[in-house]
């Protein structure tokens, strides 16, 4: 059979899934780092990880900046979505929120450690946490609004990205807590509860993803076929087994799951899953339309 096709390059590659993962993790790290000032009570047990938690947020944002510049080709381009703000584009909102979120991290650190402005801590914790969690939300929306890509155009995409960020951010804080020697029962219980809830939600959303791909439109089924044929290891081993089932098993029994080593192990595994599921979703949304 003679064919003369024209080939196309899928517009979004691995740098986007890395960015989605990192920025989501930064958001949840900030939320947990500021929780002692926001909620008090048992969350006071997390106070020792406050400064490193904020530092993680800032460092990760700092890593994301060159990643975005590399992706866009020029540093100044990052400002264009703010200067020429287009309200129907999630990317425009995301650019504004990213700048405000960074300001909140810096502002909270200043208010806490340099400015002695305790009156600002709670407002900055609330606004910054909302902005931080809006990071994964906007990245999910950025995919969801592409209504012509059926794999992406589902309302649970931003929900899933937010839940994945909650698990990866919590995992990062659990690692910091272990390194800083913060292994008190309250801290472990809080981190365990959040991680278990987010991984369990991911499990439910993953099943939803599988069912919707299996029984969806032709394009969705094609996406499913591509995932299984070319990305089987990523979706089944790294996402489902290592990223979801393994941490779920490790955390299922609270007495075992609250041990620092188990918590970190489950956290790292869930981070692998949180990255991989984004990667496979990014792929599954683009490859079905590559040749047409």
């Amino acid at each position: 059979m003679f064919e003369y096709s024209w080939y196309h390059i899928a517009p979004w590659g691995a740098e986007l899934s890395v960015y989605f993962f990192l920025i989501g993790m930064a958001g949840m790290s900030y939320a947990l780092a500021t929780a002692p000032d926001l909620f008090g009570g048992k969350f006071e047990s997390l106070r020792a990880i406050q400064t490193p938690g904020l530092a993680v947020g800032l460092i990760v944002v700092g890593v994301c900046a060159p990643l975005l510049i590399m992706d866009l080709g020029q540093p100044g381009r990052f400002l264009y979505p703010i200067i020429y703000f287009h309200w129907t584009s999630p990317l425009s909102w995301g650019s504004v929120f990213l700048v405000l979120f960074t300001a909140c991290i810096a502002g909270f650190y200043w208010a806490k450690n340099m400015g002695n402005r305790n009156d600002l801590l709670k407002p900055l914790a609330i606004v910054g946490s909302l902005l931080g969690l809006s990071m994964p939300l906007y990245t999910g929306l950025d995919l969801m609004v592409n209504t012509t890509r059926e794999v992406w155009a589902t309302p649970w995409m931003p929900v899933m990205f937010t839940v994945l960020s909650i698990s990866s951010g919590t995992a990062m804080i659990a690692i910091i807590a272990k390194v800083r020697g913060v292994t008190n029962a309250d801290a472990m219980a809080i981190l365990h509860t959040i991680l278990l809830a987010s991984v369990a939600t991911t499990f439910a959303l993953f099943l939803g993803l599988v069912v919707s791909l299996l029984y969806g439109s032709g394009e969705m089924q094609q996406g499913w076929e591509i995932l299984n044929s070319q990305y089987g290891t990523q979706i089944w081993l790294l996402t489902f087994v290592i990223g979801i089932l393994l941490p779920l098993g490790m955390l299922a029994l609270p007495a075992v799951g609250r041990q620092p080593t188990m918590l970190i192990g489950a956290g790292v595994a869930s981070m692998v899953g949180a990255f991989m599921v984004r990667e496979v979703l990014l792929v599954a949304g683009q490859l079905p339309q590559l040749y047409y």
Binding site: I9, P11, W12, F78, Y84, L91, V145, Y292
Partner: peptide, 20 residues
Amino acid sequence: ERCIACRTCMAACPYNARHV
């Protein structure tokens, strides 16, 4: 002069009508 090459438009287009 406004394009930042974010490729959002490419991702949105169902006809593969855009390129960098």
